[in-house]
Amino acid sequence: MKYQIEKAVADIGVKVVFGSVEGVDNTGRNPEWEAERKVRLENLQKRFDGLDIHGDEVFEGYHILHDKSGVKRRKNIPSSENLIKMLLKHGDMPFINQVVDIYNVISMESRLCVAAHNLDKVDGNLTVRFSDGTEKYIPLGQEQPVPMNPHEYCYCDDSNEVLCRLEIRQVNKTKVDENVRNILYIIEGNEATEEDFLLEVMWKIIDTTMKYCGGNGKIFRPNIVARNLKG
């Protein structure tokens, strides 16, 4: 499997690191993680109380990427920003499953946008590219395809199906549930984030996932491709 980013997408400031953990057990809830999770969420609430989103260079960096892609800010909130706003509003985060819970916490701590996918459901290679409107896109929680606007950066496999729109919305096709065995992680950064930081956070996610869910992890840097590749 190849991991690729279109040069035109990289040129606007999108930075991406991929990782995987294969052979996980994503069933149940680990009591040790539950205790650690509680402390980390409490610390996050204290840290981000009164946060000025647009005064934070990492969050603002995602909105700048949206500006360059013609995406409206108000309706398109980066996933890490959305998680933090949810935590501050409710004082807690809903538990979906162990894998999702771990990367959500680390996403908030790092402010980086993180996505996870069932690696076994990805068709062929994965390319970060600008959409042209022909892609198949079925957002998480929906049953019918939704049209993709042209010139939005997205993560597509060789079947021309979107796995993640911008750094905002994942999809049903590669949903991570309790039965997943092999995980693909995506960390997206922007011009305010160094690649070393993305790698550091990816290792945190991989190491924490292996600690509580088992498996073996790896990191992949994408190749830069000069043009749109679809299978």
Rank of each mutant, 00 (worst) to 15 (best):
M1H: 09
K2V: 11
E6F: 07
K7F: 06
A10L: 10
D11I: 09
V14G: 01
V14D: 04
K15G: 04
K15C: 05
V16L: 03
F18Q: 05
G19K: 06
G23F: 08
D25Q: 07
T27G: 04
R29C: 08
P31C: 10
P31H: 12
W33T: 03
E34A: 14
E34I: 06
E36W: 13
E36V: 13
R37D: 01
K38P: 14
K38V: 08
R40M: 00
N43M: 09
L44G: 05
K46Q: 10
K46G: 10
K46W: 12
L51Y: 07
D52H: 12
D56M: 08
D56A: 06
F59Y: 06
F59L: 07
F59A: 03
G61Q: 06
G61D: 09
Y62F: 13
H63N: 12
I64N: 05
I64E: 06
L65D: 01
S69V: 11
G70P: 04
V71C: 05
V71A: 02
K72D: 15
K72M: 14
R73T: 09
R74G: 14
R74K: 15
P78Y: 04
S80N: 08
E81R: 01
E81C: 06
N82H: 07
N82D: 14
L83Y: 03
K85T: 11
M86I: 12
M86N: 10
H90S: 08
M93Q: 08
M93I: 15
F95I: 07
N97H: 07
Q98T: 05
V99L: 02
V100G: 01
I102L: 04
Y103V: 02
Y103Q: 00
I106K: 02
E109M: 02
L112V: 08
C113Y: 03
C113D: 01
H117I: 13
K121I: 15
V122T: 06
D123M: 10
R129Q: 09
D132Q: 11
D132M: 09
T134A: 13
E135P: 06
K136A: 12
Q142Y: 15
Q144Y: 13
Q144A: 14
P145E: 08
V146Y: 15
V146F: 15
P147V: 11
P147A: 09
P150F: 08
H151S: 13
Y153N: 02
L163F: 01
C164A: 09
R165C: 07
L166T: 04
L166A: 04
R169N: 13
V171D: 05
T174C: 10
K175D: 14
E178H: 06
E178N: 09
R181D: 11
R181T: 15
I187C: 01
N190T: 11
E191R: 02
E191Q: 10
T193K: 04
E195I: 15
F197I: 05
K204G: 03
K204L: 06
I206C: 02
I206P: 03
T208K: 02
M210K: 06
M210V: 10
M210L: 08
K211W: 15
Y212N: 01
Y212I: 01
N216M: 14
G217C: 04
K218E: 15
K218T: 14
K218M: 13
F220A: 10
R221M: 15
R221S: 14
R221C: 13
P222N: 07
P222R: 02
N228S: 13
N228F: 13
L229W: 02
L229Y: 00
